[in-house]
Design a protein around this nucleic acid. Structure first.
Length: 272
DNA sequence: CTGGTGCCCTGTCTGC
DNA sequence: TGCAGACAGGGCACCA
């Protein structure tokens, strides 16, 4: 489900409310992708800091014990902040605090909540290693993207999905950014000139920025920690629009499968 | 190293 | 109505 905009919107919707809160309990439902990695009891009494985000991961820092929870929403996860109550059938993690309970709902359980003593040590270090630059990092340029992709024959769509060079664009926003940049999703990364890399960098920023402004995309069930849905999906130019006219040139949008994921593009205005 | 595939798990929708 | 199959916003492990 959640790509970078949805994760960031989720973060913003609860981070300040829980900054400084005391952990009063933790509840687990069915297993998520990995074990929590710490006894629940040891977290009780910890003080929460301000939640941050790296790529599609959220980091909930704590002191006493020092460390934090690294959280990923997977394909179907969402967080809600509310009163403490029984876990529902798809609620597999709850962090009860002095200022409310943060509950992870994740039917498919591809998500994760993992304890790490810090971001620079395992398991967080290993999970975050190799991620590309943040899309809004001023240090990210067409030249740095060109350098990251120049030896990669993998199609650019898959490089974006893997977070190589730049993170944050999942299936929806990778399709949208490539359309905006006029680049065919099947184009090998190495084929992109620095100028096209720069165009794609700007496209990724624009798409993610617009999605952030619209509260993300709600295809089925995404909402922020207060239950507010997103509206970006109504703006999509190509995603899930197979056969419909390209907003730019009116040619029918095509759908292909790359690495087992649907890719939508306009064959007329997106060039190899 | 690299690119490709399979898999984790559940819900929803489509077509027979 | 029932049921099988495809598909879904992500990412890891493993293979050749």
């Amino acid at each position: 489900m959640p790509e970078l905009p949805e994760v960031e919107i989720t973060r913003r919707s609860f981070a300040e409310a829980l900054d400084g809160a005391t952990v009063t309990g933790v509840q687990l439902g069915k297993p998520l992708r990995w074990p929590l990695g710490v006894p629940i009891a040891s977290l009780v009494g910890a003080t929460l800091g301000l939640a941050t985000r790296r790529a599609k991961y959220l980091w909930l820092p704590m002191s006493g014990p020092d460390g934090g929870l690294l959280l990923h929403l997977g394909m179907s996860g969402s967080l809600a902040l509310g009163e403490e109550r029984m876990l529902g059938p798809h609620q597999h993690f709850a962090l009860h605090t002095s200022r409310g309970s943060l509950v992870l709902t994740d039917p498919r359980r591809f998500g994760a909540v993992v304890w790490s003593a810090g971001l620079a040590v395992d398991p967080a270090r290993k999970l975050l290693a190799g991620l590309g630059a943040e899309p809004f990092d001023p240090a990210l340029t067409g030249a740095t993207l060109r350098a990251a992709w120049r030896k990669r024959r993998t199609p650019i769509k898959q490089l974006l999905l893997a977070g190589e060079g730049v993170v944050g664009a999942g299936n929806i926003y990778a399709c949208e950014a490539l359309w905006r940049a006029g680049i065919r999703p099947s184009t090998p990364g190495a084929r992109l000139s620095e100028a096209r890399c720069e165009r794609l960098r700007l496209a990724v920023r624009e798409v993610l920025g617009q999605a952030l402004a619209l509260g993300g995309s709600t295809l089925r069930d995404f909402s922020d920690a207060h239950g507010v849905a997103g509206a970006y999906q109504t703006q999509a130019a190509v995603y899930d629009r197979e056969g419909q006219p390209c907003p730019r040139c009116a040619a029918p949008i095509q759908r292909v499968v790359q690495a087992a994921r649907s890719t939508y593009f306009c064959a007329r205005c997106q060039r190899p």
